[in-house]
Write a protein that binds this DNA or RNA. Sequence first.
DNA 1: TGAATGATCACG
DNA 2: GTGATCATTCAT
Length: 191
Amino acid sequence: MIKKLNRNFYNQPTLKVAKELLGKYLVVKMNGEILSGKIVETEAYIGYKDPASHAYRGMTPRNSVMFGDPGYTYVYFTYGMHHCLNLVTEKKRYPAAVLIRALEPTSGIESMKKRRKRKDLKDLSSGPAKLCQALGVDLKLNGADLCSDIIYVEDRGETIEKIGSSSRIGITEEKKRKWRFFIRNNEYASR
DNA sequence: TGAATGATCACG
DNA sequence: GTGATCATTCAT
């Protein structure tokens, strides 16, 4: 049985959401076309005390959606050319989100290949900026409602056997927190 | 290993 | 306004 994740799902402890998102399906509707992929890698960014989080120094125009209600997207632009997609978690005024780091493409694959200018399936969405490019996610989708029909996550009843964890990628100095989660032995994770 | 490439933020 | 930084990717 397939069901769309509701706001209650996102209104839970972020580490739990980050782990439970593995094996779920991210769906984006672009120009009447359905693009989707299985989530195989995530990272958690939690609260004011997480030095790696954009919310560490308080609310700014860019990160304000992280401080809002759960179940919305937080999309940001970085390195002058890349977008990354987060799903906002936990209650209002508590800044937290899960970064979607990698997908296993499942539908809209031809369209993803065209946008990525790559044809190897493992090069389509095996990184946070790659999957945004593949799905056409940009700043126009910042703050989008995950309970809408534009972008959402589906539970297709799959269970994950082995979840791995590690420190987060691209974070200098921060190694203590093992807040990156991935499906073990999955070909489509990053690195 | 380093270049690409520009928004964002802290500072003053 | 300015300068440093950047939750990355790709080619060398």
